[in-house]
């Protein structure tokens, strides 16, 4: 891919990912954070964490389904932005929501399944962020690195559970997020199944025939 195109795409991702934070800062500066600012800020940061995480998880399926290569160049950047937002989300919870009330936060992490899930999601993103540099890819080896970074899907599942279990009856966005995640996971699983079947056929020495490449999957 042309370098210029890649830079343009990455610039667009930077802009899109920083825009929600900029808007939040603007609303804070103009006193427009609703009557319950702490709750509003926490929820907004959580919403964007999950959205950006899902966006990063959508990159590989985009390649699988449409054969596009450019989304892969954005995957790491999106993942790091998801990590950035989850750190802000967590910091607001500690500092503004609970004001360093460690015993209470500890009890919540253990007793409240939605907080447990959120905490696990955050923890599972830490090794991914820590190994996001090119140097780390080299040190781990591509194979191990790829395997480790499948944790991103676990983070997505945990993040969606966090949202599903905290939402009150009558809300809907938590289902949309879970649905998107299910589709993305479905594409990947379908891809794995197709590859697995093909490999088995090849191993049995059966005539392979026309290779399906990329596999024909219907777009969601």
């Amino acid at each position: 891919m042309a370098r210029r195109v890649r830079i343009a795409l990455k610039t667009a991702v930077w802009g899109a990912c920083l825009a929600p934070l900029a808007l939040l800062c603007y609303r804070a500066a103009t006193g427009d954070l609703t009557a319950n600012p702490i709750s509003f800020v926490t929820n907004t940061l959580g919403d964007w964490t999950l959205r950006i995480l899902l966006a990063s998880l959508a990159m590989t399926p985009l390649r699988i389904v449409f054969g596009l290569s450019w989304p892969i160049a954005l995957r790491r950047l999106l993942g790091l932005f998801a990590f950035f937002y989850v750190c802000l989300h967590f910091a607001v919870w500690i500092v503004l929501d609970h004001f360093f009330d460690w015993p209470r936060m500890g009890a919540d992490i253990v007793k409240r399944p939605y907080i447990t899930m959120g905490m696990l999601a955050l923890l599972s993103l830490i090794p991914l962020a820590a190994t996001s540099t090119a140097g780390m890819v080299k040190r781990l080896g591509a194979r191990a690195w790829t395997r480790l970074h499948r944790l991103a899907y676990a983070a997505g599942v945990l993040g969606c559970l966090h949202f599903l279990w905290l939402a009150k009856v009558g809300r809907r966005d938590q289902y949309w997020h879970a649905l998107v995640l299910a589709l993305l996971l479905g594409v990947r699983l379908g891809h794995v199944a197709v590859r697995f079947a093909r490999r088995r056929r090849e191993r049995r020495g059966a005539p392979v025939g026309r290779r399906v490449n990329p596999p024909t999957l219907t777009a969601p």
Binding site: A35, N36, I38, S39, L96, F99, R104, A107, D108, K111, R112, P113, Y114, W165, L166
Partner: peptide, 13 residues
């Protein structure tokens, strides 16, 4: 799903 031990008075930190 959540604790009822504390509350935030709207307008308080």
């Amino acid at each position: 799903r959540w604790s009822q031990a504390t509350e935030r008075r709207i307008g308080e930190f």
